[in-house]
Amino acid sequence: MSAPLLGVADLTVEFPTRRGILRALDAVSFAIAPGEILGMVGESGAGKSLTGAAIIGLLAPPGRIAGGEVRLEGARIDHLPAEAMRRIRGRRIGAIFQDPLTTLNPLYTIGRQLTETIRTHLPMSAAEARTRAIRWLDEVGIPAAARRIDAYPHEFSGGQRQRVVIALALCAEPRLVIADEPTTALDVSIQAQIIALLKRLAREHGTAVLLITHDMGVIAETADRVAVMYAGRIAEIGPVAEVIRAPAHPYTEGLMASIPPLEHRLERLAQIEGAMPRLNAIPDGCAFHPRCPRAIDRCRGERPALTPAGATMAACLLAHA
């Protein structure tokens, strides 16, 4: 594996509140290589979007990075001054969010938004930037790009808007793209188109992608490796095929089993009892132990570290036994 493009080590995010400090991310560590797509999956509140926000320096106050470090191409980018971080966003890290309508400014043509992004980050004339913008619209599959560049966001359909957002995130050719639920607002046939597009662009441009989603199916078809988040920690991380076919963590196993299969009809779905704990009530020891069918006494008192378990890394005391 080549040197990581993004290295996250022991990243901890806290929200100070009147009733004490809530730890929303707890010592999260992972790395992404150039051209690699790392999927990050988990249920609402697991901390997956927060991880993305912490990396690009868009944590909403009072949230703050309380520990650990984020390295982009070897250099630390956490705790950079706001202005320096602003230059990194867009130029070296691109972002794609869930809702393409709120990402685009409805008052400007998409051409203006693209050229503005390009010229903010790259030394280019207006004409050069426009040519580049058209090339990118073409690349993401907008038909008749040279004509459509002067259209406003509302003139595009949902799927096309998300293509424009992808063009916007990629037009300055960042090394890393953080895609937070990029297909969740889209219909399944459009989702398939967007997934294929993301995969192709990552491969062709050697861009590293952090793909955040709740949909294991999307991860299965898109990502090279996957990190499963639970209650602000990584429960399991490893190559997609291994995590899906032979999950080492009971949470991953439960998560996979609760997805209804397309091939046949089951009498009952396997279900994980209960729900993910709230941040102010994360259990001691393994955060998953109250819901875990295999929990033993040790799980209640001892917090498992992420250690190798077969082909993946799992944070479970029982996975290595």
Partner: peptide, 11 residues
Amino acid sequence: AVPDLERVGSA
């Protein structure tokens, strides 16, 4: 079009 767990990494 449905993403499928069985189709890991398939194009």
